[in-house]
Amino acid sequence: MIEFLDVSKLFGDHKALDNATIRIEDGTTIGIVGPNGAGKTTLIRLLCGILNPTSGKIIIDGLDLQKHPTEIKKKIGYLPEEPNLYERPKAGELLEYFGLLYGVPRNKINQRVDELLNLVGLSDRKDWRVSSFSKGMRQRLAISRALIHDPKIIVFDEPTMGLDPLTSRKIREFITTLKKEKTIILCTHYMYEAEQLCDKIAIIDKGKIKAYDTVENLKSSYIKEKTFKIGLKGIKKEILDNISSDENLRIEENGDNYLIIKTKSYENLKNILKEEITYFEDLTPSLEEVFIKLVGKKDD
């Protein structure tokens, strides 16, 4: 269990995080979303013990991070926004170094390095210098560095940013495989990524946590009506009258052979239209709409 209790972080006079409170259950995947400079990275750096909070407490598995930093840091694997890798060493040497610093036993380190390089598809590059790696390879190597000590909690800061679609997809698939056994905190710009991978989402803006809930709950909380596009065999007067008489249904658009309807309940609509429906499309806004609604602007 990870608990952020009224955590604030000041840099000079600037409040990068303002009284953040979040509880993260073990084994869940949490998405941190927000515009640039919202405080996402500050939040996860605080969680990793890279930054010290100005006020508030971060409790992980019942231990205060401020009081037991080394004990807690051993449980966390961190992938920063930029891979931040040393250039000169070979991939294997780099993983070995970090493994030893994280307390992986010397007699098991080689096996662990091989396992991880295999997992991220870099097993044939073990003896290559990091300086020769492409951006995608660096990111994959950085992921294996974050996993070298088999941490209970994994923190990813923008893991797919700037990567090509294929590599991004591979990384998302990889995160999905990790979901089964780890607590994952994923900081991302991409709403679909958060929606696809995360059990819960925290929306953060100007250092404040604006919302924190499951994707469905966020949508239902912030978007009261669902929007559907329904194709019909023919638009009969009887159907239109029935819809108009239901206070939960509202016709937004009346096409030649389709209707766009806003409703709080799909069930009512289904009962009215029955066999007339030829096709159905859910036009309900995505998480991005929730985000825009909360943050008040499109993310750049």
Binding site: G49, P69, K73, Y78, N84, G103
Partner: peptide, 14 residues
Amino acid sequence: ERRTGEMLLALPIE
């Protein structure tokens, strides 16, 4: 400058 220090700060070490 190369931001490698960020990873050092994440290490379980004072």
